[in-house]
Computed example of a mutant assay.
Amino acid sequence: MKVVTIASDLEHPFLTRLLMPSCEAVGLNLVVLHATKKSFRPRDKRAVLTDYLARSAAPDELVMFTDAYDTLFIRGEEYVRKTHAGLSHPVVFSAERNSWPMGHIGLAIQKDPPVRPYPYLNSGGFIGLAGDILALCAKYPEPPSEHFPLLRHLRTHDFDTDKVYGFSDQYYWTLVQLLEPDMVGLDNGAALFENFAPAVANFCELPRWTSDYRANGKQAASYRREHARLQARLQSPSGAAQIHFAASLTKAVVLDLLDEGQLPSWLVGVLRH
């Protein structure tokens, strides 16, 4: 089994101070793929990953993908293998509370009622056999938006979701998962992946919070609110293997908590193992 991540900045503090040390501590084999492209975009992750899997992974090798700049691990391979084997889908994605990046459009194309507490796909963590992941990417070389009547209808009104949301691999994988419900599942209960980003009614709130933080630093109301929320949430240990702080402000708070020595013992214990 391999854990694979993609990074254009090999010196990023979250990668070097949290993700890499945590994988070493729990005995996970982390492969860091260096994406040198200056204009690297989130949607490019799929091309880099599939190229690596086609060249360097056997079809039956278990692969766990993780984002590079906002994740860490607290459990190792034995737990990951056992938990994955107990799930009902060959390929399983992390899930979150927010419908991103499509917002309300993403809600409208969901076929079933939301499964709480984490109803919506998050592409910052997923697991499956290399051959299964490659087969999905080969079947859907582009975002399969033409399969969704609502998205076709929006296109007739000059709202092309491929152009608006195509920057994100999460858009691509959300559509694929909805078309392949027997093959691709979501970790709605955070058995393997837990997303610690704040839940928001309107996803536009998060960029505003980030702008507030950039303008006002730690004195920003958004920073103080997120600092308090995250400290309270971290009092309860996670039962997952991967922890994902999937928002810019959340990630900044975690790095500050690390510097301030305020991360809880269940996280610090892994990092200092």
Rank of each mutant, 00 (worst) to 15 (best):
M1G: 01
I6H: 01
L10C: 04
H12T: 10
L15Q: 07
L15S: 04
T16L: 07
V26L: 15
G27A: 10
V31L: 10
L33G: 01
H34K: 13
A35V: 02
R41V: 06
P42L: 15
P42E: 13
K45W: 03
R46G: 02
T50Y: 07
T50M: 13
D51K: 03
L53K: 04
A54E: 08
P59L: 01
D60T: 15
E61Y: 12
M64L: 15
L72A: 09
I74A: 00
G76E: 05
R81T: 15
H84K: 14
H89R: 14
P90T: 14
S99I: 06
M102W: 02
Q110P: 01
P114E: 15
R116M: 14
Y118R: 06
G125F: 12
L129A: 00
G131F: 12
G131T: 10
D132L: 07
A135T: 14
C137L: 09
E142I: 09
E142S: 14
P143I: 06
P144V: 07
F148P: 00
L150E: 11
L151S: 09
R155L: 03
R155Y: 01
F159G: 03
D160R: 08
T161W: 08
D162R: 11
Y172C: 01
V176H: 05
L178H: 11
E180I: 11
M183G: 11
G185D: 05
D187I: 13
N188W: 12
A190N: 00
L192I: 03
F193P: 03
E194T: 07
F196A: 08
P198M: 12
N202G: 02
N202K: 02
C204L: 06
S211T: 02
D212V: 00
A215C: 12
K218Y: 05
S222V: 03
R224I: 11
E226V: 06
H227L: 15
A228D: 12
Q231V: 03
S236N: 09
A240P: 12
A241S: 12
I243N: 06
F245S: 06
A247S: 15
S248E: 07
L255P: 02
D259T: 09
L263M: 08
L263W: 07
L263V: 08
L263I: 08
V268R: 15
L271C: 10
R272G: 00
R272H: 10
R272Q: 15
